[in-house]
Design a protein around this nucleic acid. Structure first.
Lengths: 253, 253
DNA sequence: GCTTGACTCTGACGTTACGTCAGAGTTGAA
DNA sequence: TTCAACTCTGACGTAACGTCAGAGTCAAGC
């Protein structure tokens, strides 16, 4: 005759609450015996089951699925666990990203408590950067991705800001020079600036350059947020002008 | 006159759903203007706000708190973010633990698809081990903790299983020898086995030994689950016998 | 002017894993 | 018998929306 436990005692044994045991009972996950009066009576072997439930719950598996796993006790378990591992790894990636965003924001605003808007801006920047990296991954080969990871380390926040400013400056200058001759000295100077900035990102690597080109051609399929951010650079005439300038430059060489 | 947006258009701009915008409106997070007919009209500067909301949400901050942060726009922001970072780091710790548990289980059961119960047992083992490590931390000095981390790497699953078995064997043997003389050869042999097993964990390190002693003395305050697991070793007479045997051993040296 | 299709509104219920009462019955001891 | 301690069930609350459902709005074509 092994001992029988009432809910409270049993809940303490397993480190869960009484209400949780009620819950598992109703969901059909762990149905104990009952006294005549309806009191739940737990057996020691119920503890084993409960521990399994708690463990699977700890892994983030929903209770309904746990119930299914017990019912069709098949080899489904292995598959479920593999899937769950992928889910958890994805969650960890997002978590890491969030933590990094806060860290960067703290780093960037530690000297002199800047207003909130600045902190937020920094956070949004980090998140969006991460986002864009993720999304633009599909355009790059694996090797190119690895190389970009390498180059990312060199991108200090200041560098990035400067880079961003140089692009908008250059774009403005090209816009102002649209009437000029693409083969002229002025246009060629602009083309040179453009080339240098592109190389600042690609590092002259052909893999990365190819990915960038692919990405640019797929522009209609970019997510809306990216289109939004790229709106200042959406003037088609500028792109055409630069292309002509490059062509002219090659022709004269 | 900057453009005004209807919900759908605006939702696409920001990459959220229409229903989410309804939600933020009702919570008072982002209240757009309305047409006479009651249609929501978003301004471009609303986009900035929305991006901030999305960013903070990404960091795991609940919407109600985000609203408070906007209302009392004080320096509360920095504090909230620091707190949130701690929360996120704790979450990551748990996530890592869960992932490790699944990995170990997969590793341990990969050769020949073992029945589910074996996989579960492995997972529970890993989680509980982690749990106990966390909880028992408070008994050890920082140095001792670092040393334990080192030694943990040597604990292969097989090693741990063997260790666990040796303990229960030894305990059974001592229980059977309770009538003997603590100073006798048999008792001394048991004491030697005991000492060796303890050293298997402490590695002879005094810091770890001290922590272990502290932990053992605090036994009444152990969590219920630990007490449960230690129940097979709760026979007080065995501990007393071993203590006497050690004392006798020292006396004769 | 009317219809039609595309939008929009609000309210209500569903989701997850319980927490928190509230009202009522049970048990064991003084 | 009475009292404290325990147990039961059902109902509502939580977070951040998703998913209808019923109803109103808007612009265009006939």
């Amino acid at each position: 005759m092994t001992k029988l436990y009432h809910v409270q005692e049993f809940s303490k044994l397993a480190g869960v609450t009484v209400r949780a045991l009620h819950h598992y009972d109703r969901l059909g996950l762990l149905k104990p015996n009952r006294t005549e009066a309806g009191y739940r009576l737990y057996h020691l072997r119920d503890l084993e089951r409960l521990e399994q439930i708690v463990a699977l719950k700890f892994l983030g598996i929903p209770l309904k699925q746990i119930r299914r796993m017990f019912q069709r006790d098949s080899s489904e378990m292995s598959d479920s666990l593999q899937m769950q591992r992928r889910v958890l790894e994805e969650k960890r990636r997002l978590l890491d990203c969030a933590i990094r965003a806060i860290e960067e924001a703290e780093k960037a605003t530690a000297p002199g408590n800047r207003p909130d808007s600045a902190i937020l801006k920094k956070i949004i920047e980090v998140i969006e950067m991460q986002d864009n990296m993720d999304w633009s991954k599909k355009y790059y080969s694996e090797e190119a991705q690895a190389k970009i990871e390498e180059r990312k380390k060199l991108w200090s926040p200041e560098n990035q800001e400067r880079w961003s400013k140089e692009w908008s400056d250059l774009f403005r200058d090209v816009e102002a020079a649209l009437g000029e001759d693409p083969a002229g000295a002025k246009a060629q100077a602009l083309a040179a600036r453009w080339k240098k900035l592109v190389e600042g990102f690609t590092g002259g690597d052909p893999e990365i350059t190819a990915g960038l080109r692919k990405m640019h051609q797929d522009r209609p399929n970019w997510p809306a947020s990216m289109q939004q951010r790229m709106q200042p650079f959406s003037n088609k005439k500028v792109w055409e002008f630069i292309q002509k300038a490059f062509a002219a430059g090659k022709a004269t060489n």
